[in-house]
């Protein structure tokens, strides 16, 4: 079970467009909502209304700032969830066989009926994609909404992951990376889709599109204000001189 398939028929995954993401966290919330009422144990919150709340999320949105020497900084919103790696390090370490990667579509899942909550898979994942639910005691992770994408009871437009369906900016795309003609493959080819931490050798399926290069990063910077040089008169002038004396 925990042996990774040598290859998968499809490579389903996400493209996340860092140029378009506005950092609204809607994907995070819709993910939490869907996965709390659907697949497996709900995503619990601990001390939700108290002074020290925490909870299980399968998707979290960080915000980074990148700044080159002598240039203005750029803000990049950065949603992060399971990358459904081809060489997923979380799967072979699992002692119970609860973690597995599906041969048919490459989705990495946890069978909660076998998970003993040892947490080793979360340690093995470099990306922090797995969180041990503190109430259920089992490992939770992105399922790529496996209960939506094949669900004939849903209208066709809803048969995509909840985060993709929700994203108001159109920054998230779902598709099959094994098909070079798919929407996601084309996006990756056009925009230079990249892997996160490629040096970890995980071969992530999900790709991130880097922010498009700005024509002039410094173009929008205002010139610095000149220092106030003229003599101040009136009340403010008196205040200035008095404060100076104290």
């Amino acid at each position: 079970m925990t042996q990774l398939p040598t290859s998968t028929e499809k490579k389903l995954g996400l493209v996340i467009d860092l140029d378009t993401c506005v950092g609204c966290h809607a994907c995070e919330i819709s993910c939490k909502g869907w996965n709390t009422v659907e697949y497996g144990a709900p995503l619990s919150d601990m001390d939700a209304y108290g002074g020290d709340p925490s909870g299980t999320f399968l998707n979290r949105v960080h915000t980074f700032e990148a700044k080159a020497e002598g240039c203005a900084s750029q803000t990049v919103h950065f949603p992060k969830s399971c990358l459904h790696c081809e060489d997923a390090p979380c799967v072979p370490v699992c002692p119970t066989g609860a973690s597995y990667k599906r041969e048919e579509d490459g989705i990495v899942l946890v069978n909660e009926d076998k998970c003993m909550g040892c947490g080793l898979c979360a340690w093995a994942c470099p990306y922090g994609a797995r969180e041990l639910d503190q109430m259920a005691g089992v490992m939770k992770k992105c399922t790529l909404c496996v209960d939506r994408i094949y669900n004939d009871n849903l209208p066709e437009e809803d048969r995509i992951p909840s985060c993709v369906r929700t994203c108001p900016a159109g920054a998230r795309h779902f598709g099959d990376f094994a098909d070079p003609e798919s929407n996601v493959s084309k996006l990756v080819a056009e925009r230079g889709g990249m892997d996160l931490m490629p040096e970890q050798g995980t071969k992530p399926v999900n790709k991130y599109l880097p922010p498009r290069p700005k024509a002039d990063v410094n173009g929008t910077q205002m010139p610095a204000l000149e220092a106030q040089s003229e003599e101040i008169t009136g009340f403010l002038g008196w205040l200035d001189r008095t404060l100076e004396k104290i």
């Binding site: 925490s54 915000t63 980074f64 700032e65 990148a66 080159a68 990049v76 340690w123 880097p210």
Partner: peptide, 29 residues
């Protein structure tokens, strides 16, 4: 820089955490 893939844009720093509280990842790892 490699974690975010943003090294090409310059030096990267965390501007805002995804949440103000703690989480399993931070406590555990």
């Amino acid at each position: 820089e490699t974690a975010t893939g943003l090294g090409g844009l310059g030096k990267v720093r965390l501007l805002e955490k995804p949440h103000s509280g703690k989480n399993y990842l931070l406590q555990e790892m």
